[in-house]
């Protein structure tokens, strides 16, 4: 179980991983995620599922190597086994015929959005896809998404390919009636910008939130977010929520809580790690 059968680099530091796990493959629906844990010392971290192959019993992930855990996962090769994968976790995305849906994927989340787009198309929607990244080198799955969708746009933060930033969405909203927006990105600011924009147009907007998680099953409350004034656990009440109701300041601040530890962990090599007295890094 959990043996990797395909491993590809899609862009610098962005890896595609397909591994065998019949149980997860059989049950997964778009919008759900897995929690991965590697080695006895590894942390538990969530990765959204980018698709499955039910015949082969495989699960597809796209991982951005941003720190220690994601690098460990990204370093595994074909034939190697991921120690622990739990899933599918979280609720499945709401998929039905909405009419015209604008699906926006940022960074690695272009993978999971492609999975939702395929389902939305099958449910009879017209899908406008927009994918984005910091710059043109980090754009992934361009051809795949274009082939899946009815209309296709690219945007980059620096304008090196496609539109610069997200303002182009205004032209779309002014030109045609969009019934729903679905946005996925690990970067909270992207989701927030879109939600604030669509609010002015009154378009229902679903965002997939990625707060820090621990167990991913609802037993710690680490992932709590405030939606419409109510506290929700993103791992089991979400991860998809109405973007117009999310308390963005809270989410952004909760995601920064370990930034000091993340930096520290990235700086140390293996020997230093062992020698480091744990109390030193706590303050």
């Amino acid at each position: 179980m959990n043996e990797i059968i395909v491993k590809k680099e899609l862009a610098p530091k962005i890896k595609f991983i397909e591994f065998v796990n019949q149980d997860i493959a059989r049950k997964t629906k778009p919008g759900q995620f897995v929690v991965v844990q590697m080695g006895t010392k590894g942390e538990r971290f969530p990765i959204t599922i980018s698709g499955t192959n039910r015949d082969k019993g495989t699960v597809k992930l796209i991982v951005n190597e941003v720190g220690r855990s994601s690098q460990k996962l990204g370093a595994l090769n074909k034939g190697e086994v991921i120690d622990n994968v739990a899933g599918p976790l979280g609720n499945a995305a709401e998929i039905k015929k909405f009419g015209t849906v604008l699906c926006l994927g940022g960074g690695v989340m272009v993978g999971p959005i492609s999975y939702e787009i395929a389902a939305l198309k099958e449910a009879g929607n017209r899908v406008i896809a927009a994918i984005g990244a910091r710059n043109k080198d980090l754009l992934i799955l361009k051809n795949e998404i274009q082939a899946l969708s009815d209309d296709f746009h690219i945007s980059t933060d620096d304008g090196s390919e496609g539109y610069k930033g997200l303002d182009f969405l205004r032209t779309i909203f002014e030109k045609e009636k969009v019934d729903r927006v679905i946005a996925m990105s690990v970067a909270t600011v992207t989701l927030r910008t879109i939600s604030e924009l669509t609010k002015t147009y009154g378009i229902k907007t679903i965002v997939s939130l990625a707060p820090i998680m621990l167990d991913g099953t609802g037993m710690c409350g680490c992932c709590r977010v405030s939606v419409g004034g109510e506290t929700k656990f993103a791992c089991c009440d979400g991860p998809e929520f109405d973007g117009h109701l999310v308390d963005w300041d809270l989410l952004e601040s909760r995601k920064r809580v370990y930034s000091h530890e993340e930096r520290l962990s990235a700086l140390l090599d293996e020997d230093q790690r062992k020698g480091f007295s744990s109390s030193m890094c706590r303050r």
Partner: peptide, 21 residues
């Protein structure tokens, strides 16, 4: 629960040797 899971299950008291802070 979160505090105890980090410490008991994930051994965060041994961070950074263990990855969970």
């Amino acid at each position: 629960n979160e505090f105890l899971v980090r410490l008991n299950l994930m051994k965060a008291y041994l961070f950074p040797e263990y990855d969970t802070p």
